[in-house]
Design a protein around this nucleic acid. Sequence first.
DNA 1: ACTTTTTTTTCCTTGTAAGGCATACGAATT
DNA 2: AATTCGTATGCCTTACAAGGAAAAAAAAGT
Lengths: 111, 111
Amino acid sequence: MPYKEKKVEKLYYSISEVAEMFNVNASLIRYWEKEFDIIKPHKNKKGNRFFTLDDIENFHVIYYLVKELGLTLKGAQKKLKENKEGTINNFEAVKTLKEIKTLLLEIREEI
Amino acid sequence: MPYKEKKVEKLYYSISEVAEMFNVNASLIRYWEKEFDIIKPHKNKKGNRFFTLDDIENFHVIYYLVKELGLTLKGAQKKLKENKEGTINNFEAVKTLKEIKTLLLEIREEI
DNA sequence: ACTTTTTTTTCCTTGTAAGGCATACGAATT
DNA sequence: AATTCGTATGCCTTACAAGGAAAAAAAAGT
C-alpha cells in the first residue's frame, strides 16, 4: 500500500453517525430538529442531512439540557433563548468587574 | 368592643388554601407530596394536611423548578438533591470573595 | 343551645390528555 | 443492498384532573 491514509476530521456526518455518537435513535434527531431552531444541518437536494461539528455541538447542548438536566423540551427551548440574552448579562458582569479593576488601578496611581 | 383582635400569622394552612395561593389544583399538591420528600405537611388522625409556612416555601421551590424553569419532576428531584451539595459551592464562592476583601483591606492597612 | 340539614372540604382511587418519542411505510438515493 | 427521507400512526410514560364517598364546617330550624 503506497500511502497510509491519514485520518482526517470529517466535515460532515450522517444522521446515523450522529445517532450512534449519542446512542439515540435517528428519529429523535429528526424530532428535535423540528423542535429546536438551533439544529439545522445542511441538506442536499434530496433532503439528506449533513451535520457539521457545530451542529453536533448544538445537539449536544440540547442533549445535556434534556437528558441530563431533566428539562422538558419547552424548558430547554426557553433556556436556550434566555442564554442568548444571558450572554449580555455575563457581558455586563465582566464589564462591571473591569470597571472595578480600573478603579483599583486608579487608586494605586494615587498612592 | 374591649379588644381589637390582632391579626396573627396563621400556623397552619389547609390544602385548599395552599392550592389557592399558587392557583393550582389540590390534587397537584397531593401528587407532589408523593413525589417530593421535602413536602411533608403535618397530618391529623384522619389524614388531613396542615401546612406550615416552611412547607409552603418548599412547595414554592418545586413550583419554580417545575412550572417556571420547566424541569421534569425527576429533574427537579435531582436538582434538589444536588442543591444540598450545591450550597457548599455558593458558600465556597462567597468565602473566596470575602478572602479577597480581607486581602484588599490588608493592603489598605499597609498604605 | 342543640339538633338537623345543607354546603364545603377532605381523602384516595381511577381515568386521561398531552408529551416524547419509536415504529412502520413506500419512495427516492447512494 | 443499505441509507435516507417524510409522514403517519402507535404507544408508553408522565403529570396531573375528575369522580365519589366520607367527614367537617356552616347554616338553618326549633
